[in-house]
């Protein structure tokens, strides 16, 4: 059986290893000090791998020590309900990513309406007239704050090319 800490330890080791790989590619020049631009990254990378292995190892030993019954309960409880929550989170992340991809093309105001409306529906609100109205109002409010009040250069998208 696999526990959270085993996954956590394994992921940590992978992150540490990838980080170390890139740390080795940092250029060291004669402007650098003796400790160098690689110095601390190498320390961080190795420490991460060591601690990841520690977490993984401790959890493996702990599971191995459990008797059959306790192990069965643990296997049932450890990940109960997590599958659904991970899928739901991935869905929300997908909506946010779509917004990011559409933003340069659709422009800020329109993308905002879609984002707010989409998330409201995804989060399970009743499909009433309220959803589009709130999406429109919310987008207008944020647009007023960021573009009009703060003067941020938000992407304008195809609407601006049509209008100009």
């Amino acid at each position: 059986m696999i526990t959270r800490n085993m996954v956590g330890g394994a992921v940590t080791i992978v992150i540490g290893a990838v980080y170390l790989y890139y740390a080795h590619q940092i250029r060291v020049s004669s402007l650098a000090d003796s400790f160098g631009p690689r110095g601390l990254p190498l320390v961080y990378g190795w420490l991460t791998i060591f601690l990841g292995a520690l977490v993984l190892g401790k959890s493996t030993v702990a599971v191995w020590r459990l008797d059959g019954e306790a192990r069965a309960t643990l296997a049932q409880e450890e990940w109960a309900g997590e599958g659904r929550s991970i899928l739901r989170a991935a869905g929300l992340l997908l909506i946010a990513t779509l917004y990011l991809l559409l933003l340069p093309h659709l422009g800020y105001p329109l993308s905002l309406v879609l984002l707010i409306g989409g998330v409201i529906l995804y989060m399970g609100a009743a499909r009433t007239w309220r959803v589009p109205v709130i999406a429109l109002l919310g987008a207008t409010m944020l647009w007023l704050i960021f573009v009009k009040l703060l003067g941020v250069d938000m992407p304008e998208g195809f609407l601006s090319t049509l209008l100009s």
């Binding site: 707010i116 409201i120 989060m123 919310g138 987008a139």
Partner: peptide, 16 residues
């Protein structure tokens, strides 16, 4: 549902 939609829009605009 409404609150979270608004928060998401707000933080993505703010970080931009």
């Amino acid at each position: 549902a409404y609150l979270n939609a608004f928060i998401l829009a707000l933080v993505m605009s703010g970080v931009y």
